[in-house]
Design a protein around this nucleic acid. Sequence first.
DNA 1: AATTATCCCAACCGCAGCTAC
DNA 2: AGTAGCTGCGGTTGGGATAAT
Length: 315
Amino acid sequence: MKKPILLGTSTATSRTPCCSKVGIKKGPWTAEEDEVLANYIKIEGGGRWRTLPKRAGLLRCGKSCRLRWMNYLRPTVKRGHIAPDEEDLILRLHRLLGNRSSLPDIHNHDAYFRVPSKKARYEYMNCKIKGSYTVNISRWALIAGRIPGRTDNEIKNYWNTHLSKNLISQGIDPRTHKPLNPVSHGSSQANQDDDDDVPESNPNPPSSFKSSELMGEKTNSMDTTNLESHQIYQHQQEVGDDCMGQPSSSGNGGDLVENGNEDHMFSLFLDSLITDNQQQQQQSNNGDLWEAEIMFPMVEFGNPQNYFNHHQQHP
DNA sequence: AATTATCCCAACCGCAGCTAC
DNA sequence: AGTAGCTGCGGTTGGGATAAT
């Protein structure tokens, strides 16, 4: 159901709609519109979405243009079925990243299991570096960023229509990746959290897992030499916001070089998590997700570097 | 063959934090 | 400091495609 418009909020009252509803076309795009949009972006570049439709001569709102470009018209977008290895990666990344509401409050580790404030969540998801460099690492975008040619919308749709149902049919809560009926796995674990709405992603968060260590997911490059020979991992560079090389409003084009080391480190860290998660599943009796979750060893590592070092020492 | 049910995904919507002024 | 506009995200919907009856 549609959420009610909160007229009392400052944003709701002050914001003008993204487009004038009068004369704006909605619904499926025609081939002609696609051509106009693609040609325009090819020549003029993307960005400035609000004014782009007028400049391009389209009777669409900017958001619609952006969405059409990002999810369909971009040359790097891959069409077709999700491959099994892609599906596997989506599952593992979703387990690692959890639901949006389970993202840890990085500024208050004691509150790790509580639903973080939206502010904290935003700061976690858009790690702000040195006041000018923000990198969006939201869940679907992050997952999509690991799968070349796939968009966050596609990943999200695939999750909602396929993977979540598969998990439910296996008796697994797709939100928490834990059994829907936790009794069979021991009540102490299942009921340790009084707040039923809060998934228990990582019972032992890294103590120094701070924002500066979470960055660069969508734009970084990576060294895959020490990782599993998974073809997917090797094309991460394609994933970035390819708005024709224009920096986004959030300043993605900022301190990439300056932060390259941390950027690289986080990428390696995430890959380590993925690899480790896969190993845990293999070791846990044909992929018993519940057992693998319990065994997840983030507690051993105070920060991503330690975690990564460990994996290099114990591949 | 016709009708109904279900699936799937492209597209829409509102929200919230950002930057610019 | 306050406000307006921009961007991008997650959640949701509508309708076409397909399957079942």
